[in-house]
C-alpha cells in the first residue's frame, strides 16, 4: 500500500549522493528496500539505510528529480520488501562498494550487538564519494579504498579482503556486481551474504523482471547466501526491462 511521507531532512552526504529522512519510522530488517514513487516521474527501488532514511546516488532522470526535493516535500513509498540480512558470524568483514553502503550501514547499526568485531572495507572512485554517515559509531575498524588513490588504500575493497579474509568468519557485501562476484570468489561462496540488484518493476514477486537464476531478487532477496548464487548469472549478465539478456 502506498504511503505519502514528508521529507524532514535532506542533505548532501557525498558527491552526487544525498540522504533523505522522512517522517515515518518503518519496521524493517537491514537489507530490505522500499519503492519510492514521485508522481509523474516514476517509481524506483532504494535500500533502507535506516528505519526512516534512504541514500540516493544521482545516476539518471529519476534520481535527478529526487535531488531537487527539499525538506517539507513529499515522497510516496511502499514496502519494506524482500529478505534482509541474517546476523551470522562474530568477527565480520563488511565489504561496500560505491552506493552499496546503505543496507550495510543498516546492518552495522541495527545488528551491531550480534557481532564481536566489525571491519568495514569501503571502496569508491575517489575521496569525496564516501557516504559514511555516522558509521564510525557502529564499526571497530574502517578501511577506505579509492580507485585513484586520492584517499586510503589505492585499489579495490576486494584487494584488501583477499589479504585479510582469514581474520573474518563471515562477510557481508553490497556494491557493483563485479565486486560482489569477486567477493564470492574470494570466499568460495561460503560464509557470505550478498545484497544483489536487478531491474525491478513490481517489487513484490509478481512481474518476474528481477529474475536472477531461479530467484526473484525482490522476493527471495535482495539478500542471498553465497551458496544460493553459485550457479547463477551473477557477475556474468543481467536482463533489460524487456527481458533480453545484456552485458553487465
Amino acid at each position: 500500500m502506498l504511503l505519502r511521507v514528508e521529507l524532514t531532512e535532506v542533505w548532501e552526504e557525498a558527491r552526487n549522493i544525498k540522504a533523505f529522512r522522512f517522517n515515518r519510522k518503518l519496521d524493517f530488517v537491514p537489507g530490505q528496500f522500499i519503492m519510492v514513487w514521485l508522481p509523474d516521474f516514476g517509481e524506483k527501488p532504494f535500500s533502507l539505510a535506516d528505519e526512516d532514511l534512504i541514500l540516493v546516488k544521482r545516476v539518471g532522470a529519476f534520481t535527478s528529480k529526487m535531488f531537487e526535493l527539499k525538506e517539507g516535500d513529499y515522497i510516496w513509498i511502499r514496502g519494506p520488501y524482500g529478505k534482509g540480512f541474517e546476523p551470522k558470524g562474530k568477527n565480520i568483514g563488511v565489504i561496500a562498494g560505491g552506493i552499496g553502503i546503505p543496507p550495510l550501514y543498516a546492518l552495522t547499526k541495527h545488528y551491531g550487538n550480534h557481532f564481536e568485531r566489525i571491519t568495514l572495507i569501503y571502496g569508491a572512485r575517489s575521496k569525496d564519494e564516501f557516504a559514511l554517515l555516522d558509521i564510525e559509531n557502529y564499526v571497530d575498524e574502517i578501511i577506505l579504498t579509492t580507485d585513484d588513490g586520492s584517499l586510503g588504500v589505492k585499489g579495490f575493497p576486494t584487494d584488501v579482503l583477499a589479504e585479510r579474509k582469514d581474520e573474518f568468519d563471515y562477510v557481508y557485501t553490497c556494491g557493483p556486481e563485479i565486486m560482489m562476484a569477486k567477493v564470492l570468489e574470494i570466499m568460495n561462496f561460503k560464509n557470505v551474504q550478498v545484497s544483489a540488484e536487478r531491474y525491478m518493476k513490481c517489487g513484490i514477486g509478481v512481474c518476474g523482471s528481477c529474475a536472477l537464476g531461479e530467484y526473484l531478487v525482490c522476493r527471495d532477496g535482495p539478500v542471498f547466501y553465497g551458496e544460493q548464487l553459485k550457479n547463477t548469472e551473477l557477475g556474468k549478465f543481467k536482463r533489460l526491462p524487456d527481458g533480453r539478456i545484456a552485458r553487465l
Partner: peptide
C-alpha cells in the same frame, strides 16, 4: 522487444493487484 510501461506498473490493493 517491448520494455513495457514506466513504473508504477502495479498497485497493491487489499484483495488483489492492478497491473
Amino acid at each position: 522487444p517491448r520494455k513495457g510501461y514506466d513504473n508504477p506498473t502495479i498497485v497493491e490493493l487489499p484483495y488483489g493487484l492492478i497491473n
